[in-house]
């Protein structure tokens, strides 16, 4: 058995495809990014090594910091609005039982299976000043003016609403599964002790859901950092960079502003930030649970 299980040739053949894909699609591009990050390459012509100039420029680039601030806003929106709501709805849904439970669960998740392309354009229409849904709703409530939801002042909030709306079902489903995994005996014991619904939720559901909440919060922060596709289609960072996100910014710098080298420098910093945040959050949560 042991001989068979330590056959080097077999091992190599089993891991080779995985490693090859990793090297070719993840590691090689990162290395290339590091290289171009040190150049002034525009996308055409020659690439000259310019040392850390791109990185120095990046530190002074206010748009880059704005993009990070927007990610932070989004993460706060996820954590303070989407997740509490998702958790409460999940807890309520768990108590429903029967057909209604399945129905609501299904309805909440549907936006998640729809392509970002559709979602972004749909919301563009919802925000449309002329025939958009939101302005029509405002009319019903008696407001007569037209709100331009994608103007410089409001755009970032409009983007946040779309993202919070789109991801709601996903967060809800994960909390829902977590709650389903809680031993029902605990709830019985609580009701025998005379605990009401609120106490049960605060004293049993919430503490037991801690690991799930931690995973969900970590994922929320990271997805806020990585956000690109919705923003790319909805506002493309505009108007005037007010809804810029890091991934979108590096893409624009490389392919629109023809600063391919600079775009790659942003990419490298972006990867480092994502790694640090992931590791950092895991560390914080790991310490707390001990």
């Amino acid at each position: 058995m042991k001989k068979l299980y330590s056959n080097k040739l077999v091992i190599a053949s089993l891991v080779f495809p995985g490693l090859l894909v990793f090297l070719f699609a993840i590691l090689a591009p990162i290395c290339l990014s590091v290289y171009y990050g040190f150049t002034d390459y525009s996308g055409m012509g020659a690439a000259n090594l310019i040392g850390f100039d791109n990185y120095k420029a990046l530190l002074k680039d206010s748009t880059f910091w704005l993009a990070l601030r927007n990610s932070l806003l989004l993460a706060i929106g996820f954590i303070c609005i989407q997740h509490p709501l998702a958790l409460i709805v999940a807890a309520v849904l768990d108590k429903l039982q029967g057909k209604a439970e399945g129905f609501f669960r299904c309805v909440y998740f549907i936006p998640n299976v729809i392509s970002v392309a559709v979602i972004a354009y749909l919301w563009k229409f919802i925000y449309n000043p002329d025939f958009g849904l939101l302005n029509n709703i405002l009319h019903i409530f008696g407001y007569q003016g037209k709100v331009n939801f994608l103007s410089k002042e409001y755009a970032i909030w409009s983007v946040l609403i779309v993202l919070i709306w789109h991801g709601f079902g996903w967060g809800m489903l994960i909390y829902y599964t977590g709650i389903k995994n809680i031993d029902p005996v605990l709830y019985e014991a609580a009701s025998i002790d005379g605990a009401n619904k609120k106490t049960t939720f605060l004293r049993i559901t919430l503490p037991l859901m801690k690991p799930v909440i931690q995973i969900n919060v970590t994922m929320a922060v990271i997805s806020a950092l990585k956000q690109m596709e919705t923003v790319y289609l909805l506002t493309n960072g505009g108007p005037g960079n007010s809804t810029q996100f890091t991934a979108n910014y590096l893409y624009q710098q490389a392919f629109k502003a023809f600063k391919y080298g600079y775009g790659n420098a942003i990419g490298v910093v972006f990867i480092i930030i994502c790694l640090l945040v992931t590791v950092g959050l895991n560390k914080i949560f790991a310490e707390k649970t001990v």
Binding site: A25, I26, A28, P29, I30, L32, S33, Y36, L225, K226, M228, A247, L250, Y251, A254, F255, Y260, G263, N264, G267, V268, F270, I271, C274, L275
Partner: peptide, 9 residues
């Protein structure tokens, strides 16, 4: 690794 960082390279 953020997917979109690999778009350029």
């Amino acid at each position: 690794i953020p997917i979109h960082a690999t778009l350029l390279p």
